[in-house]
Simulated assay, not measured.
Amino acid sequence: MIGETVLAEAAHDAVVRVEGNTYWPPESVSADVLRDSPTPYTCPWKGRAKYHDVVAAGTVLRDVAWSYPDLKKSAVTRVGRDFSGYVAFDAREVRIEN
């Protein structure tokens, strides 16, 4: 959440937790709050990330959301679940309620 704006909402068992981050299924993320960012990043074990700016409550927060559209197969095996395209938010900028 940012202020009172809910960015994503899903059942507890629908989200994936990896390295202290909560990844939300793409269909649970409000479509109008994400704006693609050109920021590049590649995780050594998950693969290439796609960053997003969050636009909500009259605020633009740069690069506070990210996803891995094409996870490495080894990442899926490591986590035990395919979370390709799931969106995580930076908990230092966005309030995460589990």
Rank of each mutant, 00 (worst) to 15 (best):
R95V: 06
V79G: 02
S28P: 02
M1N: 13
K73W: 03
P25M: 14
T5P: 04
D53E: 09
A56F: 00
P44Y: 09
V16D: 05
E97M: 10
R35E: 14
V79C: 04
G80I: 00
N98D: 13
V18N: 11
P40K: 09
R78E: 13
W66R: 01
L71R: 04
V54R: 09
T5E: 15
K72G: 01
H12W: 05
V76E: 14
V16Q: 02
D32H: 12
L7K: 07
R95M: 07
M1T: 14
K72R: 15
A65V: 02
D32T: 09
P44V: 06
Y23E: 09
V76R: 09
A57G: 11
V94I: 11
L61T: 08
P26D: 11
L61H: 11
S30K: 14
H52V: 01
A11W: 02
S30Q: 15
A31L: 03
Y51H: 11
Y41F: 14
P40M: 01
A75T: 09
V18M: 04
S30N: 12
D13I: 02
T42H: 06
R17M: 08
D13R: 15
A10Q: 04
V16F: 00
G80S: 05
A57K: 10
V64A: 09
V16P: 03
R81Y: 07
T77K: 15
I96G: 13
V6M: 05
E4M: 10
T5S: 14
T77S: 13
E27R: 14
Y68E: 03
H12P: 09
S74L: 00
A91N: 12
S74G: 03
A57T: 10
D70S: 13
V33I: 10
N21H: 08
A75W: 05
N21Y: 02
G47W: 03
R95Y: 01
C43L: 02
N98Y: 08
G47H: 08
R35D: 05
R95K: 15
E19S: 14
A10V: 00
T5D: 12
P25H: 10
R48Q: 13
V87L: 06
E97C: 06
A31C: 01
E93D: 05
G80E: 04
D63E: 13
F83Q: 04
Y23Q: 12
K50N: 07
H52S: 12
G20M: 07
Y51M: 07
G20N: 11
Y86H: 15
G80Q: 04
D32A: 12
Y86S: 04
V60W: 04
A65F: 07
L7P: 03
I96W: 08
G47P: 04
Y41P: 07
D13C: 12
E97P: 02
R17L: 06
T77C: 01
D36W: 03
G58C: 08
A75G: 13
R35W: 02
K73G: 13
K72I: 00
A14G: 10
K46M: 03
